[in-house]
């Protein structure tokens, strides 16, 4: 469960101060499929960084599974990311010239898991992300955009995180491939009850989720369930 309460974030550049978040509060339950939407400059990236434990809020609290992640040091945040969060990025960020399996196993190396178990779990994650087994040995630069993003999803899944954070996951994909990737998130949410947060500026993408939080100028503009979400719940 995710609880964000009165979170603000202020950036200082010399004497200039910029308030990216002005008091944001919401709760996300386990197993939700949710989109955080807003135009660029709305503060959604800042919110994602805080949700992803890449950054801490200036004021306010952030509880992730009951643990306060709002006042942690750099390495403690790294621990939170390692065990609780899986990231999917717009630009995929696979290691270049490295095999698919190696890419997916990367988080497991940092968790100190044995080599044979690593490979087993990476294969499970890749199948769950919908990549065909024939591609497992390929290098990351031999794959298509859709395949690359599925490898990235598998990498986010492999550590069994409680939260998958996807930052514009379809931003670099054509609409057809984007649909497939979004369907993958939907399936993971339904079949494995994973909490998935999509960060996007496109309503078309956000509509695939059950709940949309819209942010503008650092504050929540609306927080509503979509029709597909209402139909399910």
């Amino acid at each position: 469960m995710i609880e964000i309460k009165d979170v603000t974030k202020t950036y200082k550049t010399g004497v200039l101060e910029f308030q990216a978040l002005r008091g944001v509060s919401f709760t996300i339950n386990d197993g939700e499929f949710i989109a955080i939407m807003g135009p660029s400059g709305s503060g959604k990236s800042t919110l994602m960084n805080i949700l992803g434990a890449l950054d801490t809020p200036t004021t306010g609290t952030y509880f992730l599974n009951g643990q306060d992640a709002s006042k942690l040091e750099e390495d403690e945040l790294a621990d939170i990311r390692l065990s609780h969060i899986g990231f999917v990025f717009q630009s995929f960020n696979l290691l270049p010239r490295t095999s698919v399996l190696r890419n997916v196993m990367l988080p497991l190396i940092y968790s100190g898991i044995e080599k044979d178990i690593r490979e087993e779990r990476a294969k499970v994650a890749l199948l769950a992300a919908g990549l065909e087994e024939e591609h497992f040995g390929h290098l990351s630069n031999q794959l298509s955009g859709g395949q690359i993003q599925r490898v990235a999803i598998a990498r986010a899944l492999v550590n069994e995180p409680s939260l998958i954070l996807a930052d514009e996951p379809t931003g670099n994909l054509d609409s057809k491939t984007g649909e497939i990737v979004l369907a993958t998130f939907q399936r993971l949410n339904q079949e494995q009850q994973r909490t998935v947060i999509l960060i996007t500026h496109e309503l078309e993408v956000a509509k695939h989720t059950d709940r949309i939080i819209t942010i503008k100028d650092g504050a929540i503009l609306s927080d509503s369930f979509t029709r597909s979400g209402n139909n399910q719940k």
Binding site: E74, A78, R81, G86, F87, Y110
Partner: peptide, 10 residues
């Protein structure tokens, strides 16, 4: 950046 995002420590 990626390694740090997935939990690598300093």
């Amino acid at each position: 950046g990626l390694r740090k995002a997935i939990g690598a420590k300093r």
